[in-house]
Design a protein around this nucleic acid. Structure first.
Length: 578
DNA sequence: CGACTTTGACCGGCGC
DNA sequence: GCGCCGGTCAAAGTCG
């Protein structure tokens, strides 16, 4: 019967308070998480206190209505009324159907059967009519919700634009029109996020992280839609004429279902972000979960190593391309530059990198101080530096904005080792066979503030001995920096390891451990399991798909865990900013 | 045989 | 206008 899923959804809300985990699973299963997160997105601005955490998991557009109809049922009690939503009608339907066996089962005379059948038909007709009314009402209600969502999104987007314009006009209006004047800038975390621009970015990310991935079964931060998984009208079908497409491709990570997101792209013509990821890898190309086809190779100026050009082949018209080139100074470093949005769903293994690049591009294009106008601004406003960092979900502590490229480019450096002397680093980063020479000059990301699951620790950069020349300030690891480290470590792990699912699961566990009420001193059960799994996989060659499908078989659960992890990260960021 | 890689040619942007 | 350079195309070659 059609009413079955609705029934379940309402039942879920009835039991919400009893079991958050179960509630989350149910929400994910029934696809309600998107609306829940959407509600959180718009509700957060009104309530910035700790209750927001509860809202994220509990606020649901349906819950209010379902609660209303329960209230109405309790108050009115009459079943003849036509309620404003479907719950009551379903009860009517059920009652009608329940009468069927009673009517037929109780007849003993053949003459009554005809009357009973007629009564059945009438009851059924009434039920259908009631059901029809219910559907109409439901449709009207959903339409209202959609309009409300659209309005709220529009308001948020306008605020984002205002913030962006404010920074652009008041700080560096000249740079806005002169891309080539952008200096090469290193971003270092030196402050706490305070302004609303980043907060909005964070919130948009939070909402996008909750978007269920239709193809991936809502596993993994469906965040995908954060610009990677959901089809993009602006990108789809424009693969030909690549030279023409450049003006309207960007890297924003805002929700893309809304048409205004496309307007965002249109309002920022020529701003085509690129996200460069530096990672150590002996392989010719890092495994990021996507399928790529090489379409060209060139010798780039100033680098003896050729640059390879790849395009995504997971969809026919996917506009995403990437360039892979080894670093001239250190050939163990592989520089991968991503450009564009995927116009197709991504496998879970590919979502993390996609989210990283997408969010970084979003920062680049939508942030108050973008690559072109932002470099100088950031130099003068240290707080803004960290600001941008915090808006990148898996950002490295060392991000570089470059103007030498024809497009605004942000580089996420995943080659840095943790700082010396950081608490717990000695225990957290066991030595392994992948000793790598330190790169970079004095800028070191913080270390993991909690034990690292074995499989994840394997991919971390090696521990470095204390350096006397380290600036004192770098030894002070803030809580937010620690979380940042979590994120960059996640990316580093997934970047360096072909075993994506295992690495991702371990990373998620790490995030969960970091975001929990207690800084976990030991890997949580999930992490332990993942660790065992990862070690098992370490000796067995298997495809990412295989691992994905064998990952416990609970996509909904893992999706909720990811959402919870994201919530935890957001929560901590908010704490710092407040 | 289809998919993929290789590689030289081509195109457009940009600086001088 | 010219040359440089980044990026892409497409034919030929390779591989499973």
């Amino acid at each position: 019967m059609e009413t079955k899923p609705e029934r379940h959804r309402q039942d879920d809300h009835v039991h919400e308070e009893a079991d958050p985990q179960e509630r989350g699973d149910a929400a994910m299963e029934h696809g309600a998480l998107t609306l829940q997160r959407g509600a959180t997105l718009f509700g957060r601005r009104q309530d910035e206190d700790g209750a927001r955490r509860r809202e994220i998991r509990e606020v649901d557009f349906f819950s209010r209505d379902s609660g209303a109809w329960r209230q109405e049922e309790d108050d009115g009690g009459g079943r003849g009324m036509i309620p404003g939503c479907g719950g009551r009608d379903r009860d009517d339907v059920n009652i009608g159907l329940d009468l069927l066996p009673a009517a037929t089962g109780g007849t003993t005379r053949a003459g009554d059967e005809g009357a009973a059948a007629t009564k059945d038909h009438k009851t059924e007709a009434a039920a259908v009519a009631a059901e029809l009314r219910r559907v109409v009402d439901e449709n009207r209600r959903l339409r209202g919700m959609l309009e409300e969502l659209t309005r709220s999104y529009g308001t948020l987007y306008q605020q984002l634009l205002q913030v962006t314009q404010h920074h652009t006009h008041h700080q560096h209006p000249d740079l806005m029109s002169n891309r080539s004047s952008l200096p090469h800038t290193h971003l270092t975390p030196v402050g706490a996020p305070t302004n609303t621009g980043t907060r909005q970015l964070l919130e948009s990310r939070a909402s996008s992280m909750a978007q269920p991935n239709a193809e991936a079964g809502a596993e993994d931060e469906a965040s995908e839609d954060a610009g990677e998984a959901s089809p993009s009208p602006s990108n789809a079908g424009n693969n030909d004429g690549d030279r023409k497409r450049k003006m309207f491709q960007d890297g924003t990570a805002l929700p893309r279902e809304n048409g205004e997101q496309q307007a965002s792209s249109a309002e920022l013509p020529g701003r085509k972000a690129r996200v460069s990821v530096r990672a150590r890898s002996e392989a010719p190309m890092i495994s990021d979960g996507c399928q790529w086809r090489k379409y060209g190779q060139k010798m780039a100026k100033g680098n003896p190593c050729p640059r390879a050009y790849y395009r995504c082949t997971m969809a026919v018209a996917c506009p995403v391309r990437k360039q892979v080139q080894r670093c001239a100074e250190d050939k163990t470093i592989l520089v991968t530059t991503y450009e564009g949005h995927h116009n197709h769903p991504l496998p879970p293994a590919a979502t993390t990198m996609a989210n990283t690049t997408s969010a970084a591009a979003a920062m680049l294009l939508s942030g108050p101080a973008t690559s072109r106008d932002g470099a100088a601004a950031l130099l003068g406003h240290p707080a803004a530096l960290f600001h941008h960092h915090s808006s990148i979900p898996y950002a490295s502590t060392m991000a570089t904005l470059s103007a030498s490229a024809p497009f605004p480019t942000i580089t996420l450096d995943l080659t840095q080792a943790p700082p010396p002397g950081a608490a717990g680093s000695g225990n957290l980063l066991p030595h392994h066979g992948l000793q790598r020479p330190p790169v970079g000059v004095g800028i070191h990301p913080p270390t993991m503030p909690f034990p690292v699951p074995p499989p994840l620790a394997m991919f971390l950069p090696p521990q470095r001995p204390p350096t006397a020349t380290m600036p004192a300030g770098l030894h002070q690891v803030t809580r937010q920096q620690q979380q940042q480290s979590v994120m960059e470590t996640v990316t580093a792990a997934i970047t360096a390891d072909p075993n994506f699912t295992t690495a991702l699961a371990a990373a998620i566990s790490s995030v969960i451990a970091a975001g929990g009420p207690h800084q976990a001193q030991q890997p949580n059960p999930r992490g332990s399991n993942v660790g065992a799994n990862g070690e098992a996989n370490g000796g067995v060659a298997s495809t990412a798909t295989d691992r994905s499908s064998s990952d416990g078989g609970s996509r909904s659960t893992s999706g909720v865990r990811v959402a919870s992890a994201c919530d935890a990260v957001l929560h901590h960021v908010d704490n710092v900013s407040n």
